[in-house]
Amino acid sequence: MGFKLLSKLLVYLTASIMAIASPLAFSVDSSGEYPTVSEIPVGEVRLYQIADGVWSHIATQSFDGAVYPSNGLIVRDGDELLLIDTAWGAKNTAALLAEIEKQIGLPVTRAVSTHFHDDRVGGVDVLRAAGVATYASPSTRRLAEVEGNEIPTHSLEGLSSSGDAVRFGPVELFYPGAAHSTDNLIVYVPSASVLYGGCAIYELSRTSAGNVADADLAEWPTSIERIQQHYPEAQFVIPGHGLPGGLDLLKHTTNVVKAHTNRSVVE
């Protein structure tokens, strides 16, 4: 069995187990497998329904001669939608809004960016022009300005110390501490036991640490421990890039980060 097929099978099995364990909360999309990078042309966006009122959005972007996937989250909030992270750029984010209108038909009224990198804030200006209120932590807003990236308009308070959590509509926002970046936030959907790890969490097929220019490698494993301790009931975990899975993604990420750190020390 090929690795790609095995990865998709694991996603399907995880979703099936969740649907059985929580039949009222989960209505997993039966329309197909989780979209992969090879299936999404740059400039297009796919939506994948995880649970009743919960979707991931998947886009792709060219970077350094390669094409990478990027995940975000959409959560229903009454007759409105909360968006977590842009679709990595203005063109993708405009396509995301169009796809949401086509498939869901509810307005996106608020959006949260989970850290300051372009795959999370690139497209904020498109959201703002569409009347979406954009939010991020003060740290993310400051770092985005320093980096020359787009800056969300509103500040999220109460997320300055490791372990801080605040309720934001249908989700809980959690600051686990520094990891992929010093400002990275985690998003949890309690009604569906869905954990969105953003770039602080890796997919299972990833074996290298990737972009760690703004990471705190020493603190990252401790931050992941905080996530595990705060959300032990999480059933569906979405990484910032690639295929979702279960809580095993947290341990896998820790292993990859520690291996990278150990290699760096040896070198």
Results as ranks from 00 to 15, higher is better:
215 A>D: 12
154 H>M: 01
41 P>E: 09
176 P>G: 14
106 L>M: 06
39 E>K: 08
14 T>Q: 03
1 M>K: 02
31 S>K: 10
94 A>N: 13
41 P>K: 03
25 A>G: 08
121 V>P: 01
244 P>E: 07
265 V>P: 02
211 N>M: 15
165 A>W: 14
228 Q>C: 01
41 P>H: 06
181 S>M: 02
219 E>M: 09
35 P>K: 07
105 G>P: 03
226 R>C: 14
134 T>R: 02
192 A>S: 14
188 Y>T: 12
171 V>T: 15
162 S>M: 02
184 N>P: 05
85 D>F: 00
261 T>Y: 14
50 I>Q: 10
27 S>D: 05
49 Q>H: 04
48 Y>V: 07
248 D>H: 08
159 L>N: 13
91 K>N: 08
65 G>Y: 15
119 D>E: 01
259 A>F: 04
240 G>H: 15
231 Y>R: 11
196 Y>M: 02
24 L>N: 04
191 S>H: 08
165 A>P: 11
221 P>V: 12
255 N>E: 12
141 R>I: 13
231 Y>Q: 15
70 S>W: 00
71 N>C: 10
30 S>H: 14
155 S>N: 00
156 L>N: 02
107 P>F: 10
106 L>G: 10
239 P>I: 13
108 V>G: 06
82 L>Q: 12
208 S>H: 10
214 D>I: 10
56 S>D: 13
67 V>M: 10
41 P>N: 15
222 T>K: 14
198 G>M: 00
65 G>N: 03
215 A>C: 10
217 L>A: 09
144 A>S: 10
109 T>W: 13
204 L>N: 15
265 V>E: 10
49 Q>L: 09
215 A>K: 11
176 P>H: 01
195 L>C: 08
73 L>D: 03
231 Y>M: 14
63 F>Y: 15
173 L>A: 03
27 S>E: 04
4 K>I: 15
151 I>L: 13
257 V>Q: 02
6 L>V: 07
227 I>W: 03
120 R>G: 14
211 N>D: 07
30 S>E: 07
118 D>F: 15
74 I>D: 04
45 V>E: 11
12 Y>R: 10
221 P>I: 12
245 G>F: 12
144 A>I: 15
247 L>N: 04
265 V>W: 08
27 S>H: 02
54 V>T: 06
36 T>F: 02
210 G>K: 12
182 T>M: 12
69 P>C: 08
207 T>L: 09
213 A>P: 12
266 V>I: 08
221 P>E: 13
228 Q>M: 12
239 P>E: 07
1 M>I: 13
25 A>V: 09
102 K>I: 07
140 T>D: 02
251 K>N: 14
130 A>L: 02
152 P>H: 13
97 L>W: 01
165 A>M: 12
159 L>K: 03
125 D>H: 01
103 Q>M: 03
211 N>Q: 07
187 V>H: 01
18 M>L: 03
129 A>V: 14
89 G>V: 04
37 V>Q: 13
38 S>N: 12
251 K>R: 05
156 L>D: 07
23 P>M: 00
186 I>M: 04
263 R>G: 08
161 S>N: 14
53 G>S: 04
254 T>K: 05
28 V>I: 11
85 D>T: 00
168 F>H: 09
60 T>D: 06
179 A>W: 01
138 P>S: 09
215 A>N: 05
59 A>K: 03
50 I>F: 15
181 S>V: 11
111 A>H: 12
177 G>A: 01
81 L>W: 01
51 A>G: 07
4 K>M: 06
19 A>S: 03
21 A>C: 08
208 S>Y: 03
149 N>Y: 15
215 A>F: 06
160 S>D: 04
178 A>Q: 15
232 P>S: 07
60 T>C: 05
74 I>N: 02
244 P>T: 12
247 L>K: 10
210 G>H: 02
79 D>M: 09
27 S>I: 05
108 V>Q: 01
230 H>C: 13
